[in-house]
């Protein structure tokens, strides 16, 4: 019971920080996109437009929360909750600093993969429950995309697991004391970055909601805070993937002089900015290109990475 009482402040702190950050990301993304496209972006509400997130949130809370009469009501309501729940659950295993971690599981990495595979349901169910052809097409595309990209997302991480010898994320960070895994696992890092982009359904992988062809894809029928939950879920997903890249490939909290929490925040922030830069820089892929790229390029590369890493690890331990 004592341990639960000790964990509660951590859980509350992580939750509050994440939800605030995901709201602030709305501002950050618009501002950075503006910067890279040679315009100002939101700069009217508050200093540097910082209160834009508050204005957006007030607006989205005030909107009518409408459930279409032709929708499957129960599933329609559950779908946006699924993405928030699964992404927030994944944060439970992320070690922010040596002491700030909600659940120090010995299967932490697998837990992350399990939650990310469950988050696919959110989009699929939203597309189906809306009972709208555009939503359904968006849902179908999303399920095909997320299933395909999950396969080598998991495979790309197994190199890290082999080098660290553990599924525990804290142990993985400790194993990077001398050398960050982004150097021996450069291929794994690139594959994970691309798979992470696809899992969060960001440009160039935002085909499930391609507005040029599908209105808004799976969330066409959603309004008000239910739409807002998909939006927050997407931003939480970006934070999660950035945090995971930091933990798995860039030494997590480790770094000289500054305290661990600061190092973790800096690294994660840089990857969040990279995600936004990719949105500003890249066009959307076509669906057949996306599937062919996943199965014909990324999967073989992930398998090669797995084999080579395994061979090298074995060669380093001739006694076993």
């Amino acid at each position: 019971m004592n341990e639960v009482a000790f964990r509660l402040p951590i859980i509350a702190g992580v939750l509050v920080t994440l939800l605030t950050l995901s709201a602030l990301l709305i501002w950050l993304e618009r501002r950075l996109l503006g910067f890279w496209q040679e315009r100002y972006g939101p700069n009217r509400v508050g200093p540097f437009g910082l209160l834009q997130s508050v204005a957006d949130m007030i607006k989205i809370f005030m909107k009518e929360d409408w459930v279409p009469p032709f929708a499957d009501k129960a599933v329609f309501v559950i779908a946006p909750a699924v993405i928030i729940v699964t992404v927030l659950m994944s944060f439970a295993v992320v070690p922010f600093t040596p002491s700030i971690v909600v659940a120090d599981l010995n299967i932490g990495l697998l837990f992350f993969l399990a939650m990310s595979s469950l988050s696919a349901y959110s989009v699929v169910l939203a597309g189906w429950a809306s009972n709208n052809k555009y939503s359904l097409l968006g849902g179908l595309r999303a399920s095909a995309q997320m299933l395909s990209y999950e396969v080598f997302m998991g495979l790309s991480l197994m190199g890290v697991v082999m080098l660290a010898g553990s599924f525990n994320l804290g142990d993985i960070v400790e194993a990077q004391r001398d050398l960050w895994f982004c150097i021996p696992q450069i291929l794994g890092f690139i594959i994970f970055l691309i798979a992470g982009l696809a899992e969060t359904k960001r440009i160039p992988f935002d085909i499930p909601e391609a507005e040029a062809e599908l209105v808004a894809g799976f969330h066409t029928e959603y309004s008000g805070m239910k739409f807002g939950m998909f939006f927050v879920g997407e931003y939480l997903g970006i934070i999660l993937i950035s945090a995971m890249i930091t933990v798995l490939f860039f030494g997590g909290w480790q770094g000289p002089w500054l305290p661990p929490a600061i190092w973790f925040s800096i690294k994660t922030f840089l990857f969040i900015c990279l995600f936004i830069l990719l949105r500003a820089a890249l066009p959307r892929l076509r669906f057949d290109q996306l599937m062919a790229f996943g199965w014909k390029v990324m999967l073989p590369l992930a398998l090669v990475n797995l084999t080579v890493t395994g061979a090298l690890v074995l060669a380093g331990h001739p006694s076993k």
Binding site: A114, L118, V124, L140, S143, M146, L147, E150
Partner: peptide, 11 residues
């Protein structure tokens, strides 16, 4: 089971 096979079923 829950993440891969059932997604295929739902699909």
């Amino acid at each position: 089971y829950a993440g891969a096979i059932m997604v295929l079923f739902v699909f």
